[in-house]
Amino acid sequence: GTKRFITNADKAHVFTVMARTGDEPGGRGVSAFLVPRDLPGITIGEPEKKMGQKGARVADVVFDDTPVPAALRLGAEGQGFKIAMQVLDRGRLHIAAVCVGVAERLIADCVAYASTRMQFGKPIAEHQLIQAMLADSKTEALAARALVMETAARKDALDERAACGPGRPPLGDNVVLESAAAKYYASEMVGRVADRAVQIFGGAGYIADYGIERLYRDVRLFRIYEGTSQIQQLIIARETLKRGG
């Protein structure tokens, strides 16, 4: 089979692979493996030409009758989906934090530009509609930052508690909902901030020399990888119903 859009596939020496090893339905029949790149039957496709984030190359990983011994399995058989979900919680929180950082960079660039770009005899930062866009961007960035920080603190506390002893956590004693909400809100937020940045810069925002158009293209991917915005909505709704509110 083929796994598409693997980040840094052409550089990696080992891949984490989820494969079905049992007949149980859904995620219960999936196991996780650490698969070295040099195993027989593994080939790497040509890197894709992407819209943005060109510093991170993506390519296909193709498996053709690749033998994977049980010794390369991560965890117990059938635990692959659970392992993947635990990693995704951390990954989604990480993406949310990156979105906040990019938004703060965009806002700083907008303030610097609007404070020096003159129009009608004064900096455009003194025009109220420019101020309104800055206010919206700053407010949304602060809200996303607060959500990320609160979720990260809770994740740290849960990890510390788990390290102290075994036991099944009570219902809702995880950050599945919160990390999905952080990723959903922050990725949508930075898209709006980038769009306003292009608007504040005007024609200059459409020119590569200023860098705003690059960030505008780069942030679009945040709403897709580590689970699309639509997947985050499903997770948030499912967890909210499960927790009773």
Rank of each mutant, 00 (worst) to 15 (best):
D156P: 00
V148L: 11
E213V: 11
E150Y: 02
Y185W: 06
V30A: 02
E188Y: 06
T43W: 15
Y206H: 10
R214Y: 03
D64E: 14
G75I: 10
G1F: 00
A112H: 10
P166L: 13
V176P: 03
E24Q: 14
R161S: 11
G203T: 13
Y184I: 00
R20K: 12
A182Y: 02
L142H: 06
G78Y: 15
F63S: 03
K3P: 02
K155G: 01
A32G: 13
R92I: 01
M85F: 00
A108V: 00
D89G: 08
K122R: 09
R220W: 01
E178N: 04
K82T: 11
D109I: 06
V219L: 06
H13T: 12
G227H: 05
D60I: 02
G227K: 13
A163R: 09
G78R: 12
R154T: 00
M18Q: 05
I6L: 10
Q131V: 01
G167I: 09
M133S: 05
M149V: 09
K122M: 15
V98G: 08
I235F: 02
F120Q: 06
R4A: 14
A125R: 02
S179I: 01
A12Y: 00
G245Q: 11
R192D: 03
P47F: 01
R145V: 06
L88D: 15
A132V: 03
G26P: 12
G80C: 09
R4V: 10
D89P: 04
K242V: 06
V102K: 02
V98D: 01
G203V: 07
D195Q: 09
A162K: 09
E77M: 10
H13R: 11
G29S: 05
V100N: 01
I130G: 06
P69H: 06
V98P: 01
K82H: 11
V17E: 01
K54S: 08
A19H: 07
K49I: 13
F222E: 01
A9Y: 00
T228H: 12
P166F: 14
R4H: 10
R92E: 15
Q230S: 10
R168I: 13
Q128G: 01
I200Y: 09
